[in-house]
Design a binder for these strands. Structure first.
Lengths: 171, 171
DNA sequence: CTACTCTGTTTGACATGTCAAGCAGACTGC
DNA sequence: GCAGTCTGCTTGACATGTCAAACAGAGTAG
């Protein structure tokens, strides 16, 4: 009774899987070699650097990059040690913590970003023509429209078993 | 002098990133809830189950799924504890180890596969039309053709700093 | 105010991944 | 054969991620 994938579907799925695996490996490698940053570091730095004042509340940041708050807290501690970010209190709520880019963090992400775009172009974007890029955007749009409905269980319960089955209430 | 991404390129790239993040989260979640397996477990089990006799040499398996031999060795030990696979000697070479599916491992992957396809359909394949699937396969093809040249540095030196710059000798 | 509950974060114990070192079986030239 | 080297794998120490428990400030009812 299982609907297995057809050949075309399989090609698309395996292609995606393989792409994901190899592209990530390569980009991670470049990032480490070029800037001494891990993907995790890059995600944090680039996201915070986009925020006003280069500061963002910990919980917000975690939600944005889809990490558990706990993971982020640990990682921020390590990045703090390395001098890339600092923790700061959040004026209007004594519980809340804010992650702030240090000057070094800002300098680091600026330098890293240049090399990172180059890497992304080299291994991905520049290999595709405008049609491909448009198709990719379309695909992502369709899938994300679905996932963004399905995915967001209570953020506090990240990682809970059997999160939620989907299929909108349906007929 | 950096060529930043144009709006269209950015849409495609960010779309891919987001897709990757959310889709992986969702599929990992389903897999854990449905079958009690991690992505890592699934990769190992499904790959070995495709091999003749449900057995594969450790090094081969690692190369196939792009893991370091060390990571695989550790993980196989854990799966062994859980009764999903076993290690066996490889007759013609005393150094070599073979990973073999146990009956339980085989039963597990068979059951898991059904639910996994369903999950993949639900969150990905069934959301796309044939045009999308074809486009995706094309994109993957182009990028993989490039990456498969660039990527494979000496397998022994997995994780070495500054692996290899690419750009085929050019001009 | 004070007890309750709720919420944002931290922490510690444990699972998983990485890196470099260690080991034992193959191969090679002599 | 057998020293030297290579190869395939394992191991241990350390980095990173996960989960549940612990905290401390905020919000609420009496």
């Amino acid at each position: 009774m299982t609907r297995w994938l057809t050949d075309d579907e399989m090609r698309a799925w395996l292609g995606y899987r393989r792409l994901r695996t190899l592209l990530d490996l390569q980009i991670t490698r470049d990032l480490a070699a070029d800037s001494g940053l891990s993907d995790a570091d890059y995600d944090v730095l680039s996201t915070v650097s986009d925020a006003p004042d280069h500061r963002m509340r910990l919980g917000e940041l975690a939600a944005e990059i889809k990490w558990s708050v706990s993971r982020l807290s640990h990682h921020v501690s390590r990045m703090d040690q390395r001098g890339l970010v600092t923790r700061d209190d959040y004026a209007s709520d004594g519980r809340s913590a804010t992650v702030v880019l240090t000057d070094e963090g800002w300098a680091t992400i600026q330098a890293a970003a240049k090399l990172h775009v180059a890497s992304v172009r080299r291994h991905f974007i520049d290999l595709l023509d405008p049609t491909d890029l448009a198709a990719l955007a379309t695909i992502a749009g369709k899938v994300l429209a679905h996932l963004e409905q399905v995915t967001p269980p209570d953020p506090a319960r990240r990682g809970t078993p059997r999160t939620q089955r989907d299929e909108p209430p349906a007929t």
